[in-house]
């Protein structure tokens, strides 16, 4: 139960961070991506601040034997820079550029702008499920 409460609080910190940062406004996100137009560099500072705090903190956190509330640190094991990584990231970038929305802010705006965001979220999940099928096929082909 305490594990769920910490997960809830951590999620809320993330959501509040997104709100303060301006990430919940698609127009602001596109303003950052509009490098060749009227460029708003704000979101570079969002990423900078986030990476800085996380990178410094991780040096201490990953020294521990295990996380505070679970058995082990589950870090990604894949290390190869492969076609799915590149193709998927390019596809994601197209969707992000068109809408100004990436998954975190979509979840964080679900109830703020439910009329627009619930259908967006539904389509995002549909894409995600198709992507998971594609990835299972890719994995199966590698094993064959």
């Amino acid at each position: 139960m305490t594990r769920l409460i910490t997960a809830l609080i951590i999620g809320a910190i993330f959501g509040i961070g997104l709100a303060i940062a301006g990430m919940l406004n698609p127009a602001k996100v596109v303003g950052f991506l509009d490098v060749f137009g009227d460029w708003d560099p704000s979101l570079a500072l969002v990423m900078g601040g986030g990476v800085l705090v996380n990178a410094i903190g991780l040096r201490f956190v990953l020294e521990r034997e295990a996380p505070i509330q679970s058995a082990e640190f589950l870090l990604p094991t894949a290390s190869s820079i492969d076609k799915p990584l590149l193709a998927g990231s390019v596809i994601f970038g197209i969707g992000w550029g068109i809408s100004g929305l990436c998954p975190g802010p979509v979840v964080a705006s679900l109830l703020l702008n439910s009329n627009a965001m619930l259908p967006f979220f539904g389509m995002l999940i549909a894409g995600l499920l198709l992507g998971r099928i594609v990835m299972r096929r890719v994995a199966a082909r590698h094993l064959a």
């Binding site: 894949a78 799915p84 992000w96 995002l124 995600l128 990835m135």
Partner: peptide, 16 residues
Amino acid sequence: FYIAAFLVGLGTAIGS
């Protein structure tokens, strides 16, 4: 708007 949503889901699943 909806195509973008689909691409965001698809791309992040494939791109991990």
